[in-house]
Design a protein around this nucleic acid. Structure first.
Length: 541
RNA sequence: GCGGGCGUGAUCUAGCGGUUAGGAUUUGAGCCUUCCAAGCUCACUGCCCGGGUUCGAAUCCCGGCGCCCGCACCA
């Protein structure tokens, strides 16, 4: 059996993940996480939070999965988040538009039977409705990002009106894929962790870039060959467009390596212009090599001001940030000042309309008549009704729509990759022996706790110890069934890094053995020190 | 969606028109057991769903659902 099948089989057998609704025949594109999988995913997401919320000081929020029509209309998803599907009316073959050549599309002729082709589009969003009586159209969100963008004004305020700042959300996204496949790779409901970092559009530098500049990464620039270099160098050579993108490339690599991804099987590929999502100007994917080939697990996109501008236009909400100049600047300004004493008597109730129009106009270079529109009629307004004044104002800064750098992580794909990269098969007395060499911090169970034999009072001591560890926040698994070797094997297969055994020596000197998953080595640790010892050994070295 | 392959206990599989669907692993109970899947006894769990052909279907045919491979795409 190939690695992929081994993992799928192991995942199902040991409660990591399996297809949803199986007793009803299954539903493609949906997967359940079992007891161990839920723990594993929790740990992976927590590790991610360690990077983004603790490390980067991003603000974590949580917004609804259901979004009203207008939100996703404004964001462009209603119109652009489509797959163009071409079907033949005669032989009923269906193609994605990208598969066909220009000529075939022009001719609208089926490549297999020459029948007439029909162009159709399919939106990838799940539709739903809000309300019982007045049903309003809505969608399940295709990304968590929009929930962050629509909250920008409040978040900007919360971040004390300073750029850059980041906001993250960990949650579910939904895409009604045409053809879900390959287990956790393409799901219709999936877990994502997204960060939206708001930068001044003219300053995409990162204050801590220096810390990562030396990190070596594998990259494939658009239209170029794969190469390995430091992110600092890639920046200097212009291969990566700005520091912010480069920084998050490096940070993403650090996160993935901490999660147990094999560095040799990780690369960053820049999107070609035509494969970019509708909202992105530049995008780098972190791709991980697995039995399924290179799979995209993280997208790091420069969304520019696209989303904030869209929501600002749709709602009129202020999505700008204030950029203070170093020194206040004195600016000369010319302004039209209406003369109300004359406008009022002359135009009566239409005077207000004229004033509003004048406010939006460019001041004329000299005293001359201005054209206004009154009830659909063009009227020339003599210079006597207004004055053009020149004034000096002090400008302390200006309002800009921030640019967004978005690292977006597909948690399920990453979890599959972690399992595959840490799956180790060995021979043990002619039998296949499986270990998952997960980093201790993400392993679903941290410590197995066993009595060496189930007599002589050892189980009671071990049970007490198990309880003690759990009270200290350590996920344990107590087991007294079968030989000690079998119990170690059970723990190795689910990636438990440490096994603690209570033996007869424990009764004499109050120490226990701790056995390491990857080396099977053992050390004796005083029982009262054990929780602290485990905490210290969980940390990545 | 298209083409090809495949659906048998939790997992891996035998069975290819004819008794009560067999094995291995796992799991549970018990015996045994002083550190790496030891042994023994017992036990639980299965032919993806629906229709058809047939005296008789896990097996042949049709449809659905699911999985895998290829074509292709946003995490």
């Amino acid at each position: 059996m190939d690695v992929y099948s081994q993992i799928i089989s192991l995942a199902k057998r040991r409660g990591i993940f399996h297809p949803s609704y199986e007793i009803y025949g299954g539903e493609a594109g949906f997967y359940d996480y079992g007891p161990l999988g839920a723990l594993l995913r929790h740990n992976v997401q927590n590790l991610w939070r360690n990077f983004y919320v603790l490390g980067e000081q991003c603000l974590e929020i949580s917004t609804p999965v259901i979004a009203p029509y207008e939100v996703l209309k404004a964001s462009g998803h209603v119109d652009k988040f489509l797959d163009v599907v071409v079907t033949c009316r005669k032989c009923r073959s269906a193609f994605k538009a990208e598969e066909l050549s220009e000529e075939q599309l022009q001719a609208l002729e089926c490549p297999s039977c020459r029948g007439p082709l029909e162009k159709g589009r399919m939106n990838l969003m799940f539709e739903t409705e809000i309300g019982a009586v007045n049903r309003r159209e809505a969608f399940l969100r295709p990304e968590t990002a929009q929930g962050i963008f629509v909250n920008f004004p409040l978040l900007y305020q919360y971040a004390r009106r300073k750029l850059p700042f980041g906001v993250v959300q960990v949650g579910r996204g939904f895409r009604n894929e045409v053809s879900p496949r390959q287990g956790l790779y393409r799901l219709r409901e999936f877990s994502m962790a997204e960060a939206e970092i708001f930068f001044d559009p003219e300053d995409k530098t990162h204050p801590r870039f220096g810390e990562v500049a030396g990190d070596q990464v594998n990259v494939i620039p658009a239209g170029g060959e794969e190469l390995r270099s430091s992110v600092g160098r890639l920046m200097e050579e212009g291969i990566i467009n700005n520091q912010a993108l480069a920084y998050y490339l490096a940070l993403t690599q650090r996160f993935l390596l901490a999660a147990g991804i094999d560095p040799a099987k990780l690369r960053f590929r820049q999107h070609q212009r035509e494969e970019m999502a509708h909202y992105a100007r530049d995008c780098w994917d972190a791709e991980i090599h697995t039995a399924l080939g290179w799979i995209e697990c993280v997208g790091i996109a420069d969304r520019t001001a696209y989303d904030l501008t869209a929501h600002m236009q749709a709602t009129g909400a202020d999505m700008t940030a204030f950029r203070a100049y170093g020194e206040p600047v004195k600016e000369k300004r010319r302004r039209i000042v209406p003369d109300m004493a004359k406008l009022g008597p002359a135009f009566k109730d239409r005077a207000k309309d004229i004033v509003e129009q004048l406010e939006r106009m460019e001041p004329p270079p000299e005293e001359s008549a201005l054209q206004v529109t009154l009830e659909g009629e063009r009227v020339m307004l003599d210079p006597e009704f207004f004055e053009v004044v020149e004034e000096e104002v002090t400008v302390t800064g200006k309002n800009v729509i921030p640019h967004v750098i978005e690292p977006s992580y597909g948690i399920d794909r990453i979890i599959y990759s972690i399992l595959e990269h840490n799956y180790v098969e060995a021979e043990k007395e002619g039998e296949r022996y499986v270990s998952l060499r997960l980093p201790p911090s993400i392993a679903p169970v941290t410590a197995g706790v066993f009595p060496l034999v189930s007599k002589d009072g050892l189980p009671q001591v071990a049970l007490d110890l198990d309880r003690h560890l759990r009270e200290r926040g350590i996920m344990t698994f107590y087991d007294e069934a079968g030989s000690i070797g079998r119990r170690y094997a059970r723990m190795d297969e689910i990636g438990t890094p440490f096994c603690v055994t209570v033996d007869h020596t424990t009764l004499e000197d109050d120490t226990v053995t701790v056995r390491f998953r990857d080396t099977t080595e053992q050390v004796r640790v005083p029982r009262h020190r054990l929780a602290a010892w485990i905490d210290e050994n969980i940390r990545p070295q």
